Computed example of a mutant assay.
Amino acid sequence: MLLDLALYLVTPAPWRHRRLGYVRESILLTSRARRCRRAWAPHCAAARAAMLAAATDLPRRETVVVLGSGGLADVPLAELSALFRSVVLADAVHPLGARLAARRHGNVRLVTVDLVAEAGAVGALCGSADLTISANLLSQLPIVPLDRYEARHQPVPEGLGRHIVAAHLAALDGLPGRVCLITDVAQREEDRLGRITDSLDLLHGVTLPAPPRAWDWEIAPFGEAEAERRLIHRVHAYPDWAARRPSSPA
């Protein structure tokens, strides 16, 4: 708790992003990633492999943009820095650990951007990129806007979550370079007997095509959220989103 508070106070971020709750969400996610490092390891390895697969056969490797880079737990920064002349990490908040990691590579640049509120940001950042990676971002985009309405005890505009998800996909579809999309799509809650006790659609009704790669992400092991429950996310990965090659999920 004290560590989280200290990180909240010292993490650089625009006042607007701090006021909207982006810094709080970033600290909570970074802390969970630290606590659940072992449980997250298979997911992070699979995500990194999908990102590198997207980069292997590109005809040109000038610029890669990682949207939702966050704490870099699932981003192979060293490998991307070696493959591309320029690496752009884009997120609403860049935690201190990510900032330190970026400084080790002379070709890495940080961009602080609210990808929900700043219309056209994806196109402006990624319009000339050879590869754009949407890194476990899609399901996260609606969280802060929806929480803001709930905190104010205001009714949530109908379809807001779905609209935010669809808008990000539309922005990715408009990019000329290759797009790698990695996103969690559904959450299930399990008890210790493996029974599903609850489930949640993380994309608010938006359905994605069958992915070339898919896996389970134990995002909250037993004892993290509840003693007798764990949360598992289903993840879809599309190393080449434009191709949308259907395959049997792993």
Rank of each mutant, 00 (worst) to 15 (best):
V88K: 06
D240Q: 09
A170F: 02
P211S: 01
L100M: 05
H233I: 00
A47F: 00
W241Y: 13
V235R: 05
F84H: 02
R48S: 08
S69E: 00
A186F: 14
H43V: 03
A47L: 06
P209S: 09
W40A: 13
R245I: 15
D91G: 06
G123Q: 10
V206A: 02
A135N: 15
V66P: 03
P145W: 04
L202H: 03
N136Y: 04
A166P: 07
W15L: 15
R152T: 03
Q140R: 11
E150D: 14
R61V: 09
E62V: 02
A119P: 05
L2P: 10
L89P: 00
R230G: 02
L181G: 08
A117E: 15
E224Q: 05
E190R: 06
L2A: 14
L138D: 06
L169W: 10
D201C: 09
L67P: 01
G194H: 07
A117R: 15
P211D: 10
R178T: 14
L203T: 14
P155I: 02
V206F: 00
L172V: 07
V156M: 03
V116A: 12
T132A: 08
T63Y: 09
A166E: 13
L77P: 02
L175F: 06
R103C: 01
G194M: 05
V64M: 05
A13P: 02
A50T: 02
R192K: 13
A46C: 04
V111E: 07
F84D: 08
R34K: 07
A49M: 07
G68V: 00
P59K: 11
R230T: 09
C180A: 11
V65Y: 00
D114A: 01
T11E: 03
R178M: 10
P76Q: 06
P59L: 02
I143A: 12
W217A: 01
V88D: 00
A243T: 14
P239I: 05
D57N: 06
R104H: 14
A117D: 13
V75A: 04
R16K: 12
L20E: 13
A98G: 03
R34S: 14
T11W: 07
P142T: 13
L72N: 02
